[in-house]
Design a protein around this nucleic acid. Structure first.
Length: 387
DNA sequence: TCTGGGGTCCTCGCACCA
DNA sequence: TCTGTGGTGCGAGGACCC
């Protein structure tokens, strides 16, 4: 038996949950995000069904732009409570297996398992999730989290060619099926195993990833791609071959080493079912109309500060630090922060501190967003129980 | 085209202190 | 007394993720 990491990623999760409760939407382009009114400005798409994606609608796109691309789509408001409940159903289904489940958001998780046949386990997980929740998922199999996560991108490609992340074409002579290790089962023409499942390990990493742009790596965004390109590093193979000292010098000792490892497909192999303690909570609001009046700006900030403080206190947390974020119409978004003289749960203290931070900004320009983030005092260890 | 909201982690510059 | 050095905490900002 070997230790395997499986990355389970729900297919178009939010759209799928909406379609599940309104089956008449099946097969239609569905766009979820904002208030559900596609004529309203300053709202973005949270998710789009595969049918909507075929029209060029993407997550993060302004809802109004999505409306222009696909006016016939069904536009729905976001309903976080329902997605949270659906996510719990999925995670509970996975936990019913003898595996370790590490949740990474509503629609994805890592599963750690001892098995000799990870493809069979992946197929069982997918079947159980679909049977119990009527939602489908894709599964990436890897020997670490980096590879499992990337493998899911290849697994998804088999389910929808609207996905931007395309798997490598198998070589004429040695497809990934041959390179993927001795326990690989029959591979299909795309180089993985069954539809919705893909395996990426040390054995096929180079063949599958070497020629791809660094942007395809999990953790390399557009900025870092640009920075790497400046060093003459454009492909995963370039990154794997790069001088580690150069990367450390350019990106710092920690990140430099991390990028070097990423190019080789190295990553974490630990999976934990202990939920992570949040370290901060924030609330931010983009206003439909820009704010220019200082009194209004102060009042809105105070409202947000008290709101987020109440949320935090309701969870029994104590605040040790506060950030205030201001986004101007130019999209310039400075942030000011202050450590509190002593930890507090008092909304008035937070509101007053937020206001004093606000005075550090140049408020002579129109403001489109205000935000408040509160950092928690680390939780104290459990008190010893005395009987 | 016109860019949400909620998070985490890392780096860097600066002040302060020994 | 002046200068250099290194550790630490803080504030700001960058980058990434879903």
């Amino acid at each position: 038996m070997s230790w395997w990491l499986l990355h389970v990623d729900m297919d178009q999760f939010i759209a799928a949950v909406e379609i599940r409760r309104r089956p008449e939407l099946r097969g239609l382009p569905v766009v979820v995000g904002g208030s559900g009114d596609p004529t309203q400005p300053r709202q973005v798409v949270a998710t789009a069904s595969y049918e909507a994606r075929a029209f060029g609608v993407r997550s993060g796109m302004p809802v109004r732009a999505a409306y222009k691309k696909c006016p016939q789509a069904v536009f729905l408001p976001s309903d976080p409570a329902t997605y949270e409940a659906a996510s719990t159903e999925v995670m509970d289904t996975l936990r019913s297996f003898p595996v370790v489940v590490e949740v990474w958001g509503w629609d994805e998780c890592f599963v750690g398992a001892e098995t000799d046949d990870p493809e069979a386990l992946a197929a069982e997980l997918r079947a159980a999730v679909e049977a119990r929740t009527a939602l489908t998922c894709s599964v990436g199999i890897g020997d670490n989290k980096t590879r499992a996560k990337l493998a899911t991108g290849f697994a998804k490609h088999k389910r929808s060619h609207a996905e931007p992340f395309e798997p490598a074409e198998p070589s004429e002579t040695t497809g990934p099926s041959e390179a993927a290790g001795p326990t690989t089962r029959t591979a299909d023409s795309a180089g993985g195993t069954a539809a919705g499942i893909y395996r990426l390990t040390a054995a096929n990493w180079r063949q599958v990833m070497d020629h791809r742009p660094v942007r395809d790596l999990w953790g390399v965004g557009s900025r870092m791609e640009h920075n790497l390109n400046e060093l003459g590093i454009s492909t995963v193979a370039d990154l794997a071959a790069a001088d580690v000292d150069l990367l450390k010098k350019r990106f710092g000792p920690k990140m430099g080493a991390w990028y070097a490892a990423l190019g080789r497909g190295l990553g974490d192999t630990q999976v934990t079912d202990v939920p992570r303690e949040p370290v901060s909570r924030s609330r931010e609001e983009t206003f439909p109309e820009d704010l220019t009046d200082p009194t209004t700006i102060a009042a809105e900030l105070r409202r947000i500060a008290i709101q987020v403080t109440n949320d935090v206190v309701a969870e029994g947390r104590t605040i040790q630090r506060i950030w205030v974020k201001v986004r101007f119409t130019t999209f310039y978004t400075p942030i000011k922060s202050r450590k509190l003289p002593s930890p507090t749960q008092d909304p008035e203290t937070i509101a007053t501190t937020a206001h004093s931070l606000l005075e550090k900004f140049d408020l002579h320009r129109p403001i489109r967003l205000l935000g408040v983030r509160l950092e928690f005092l680390p939780p104290t260890p459990d008190e010893p129980i005395t009987i």
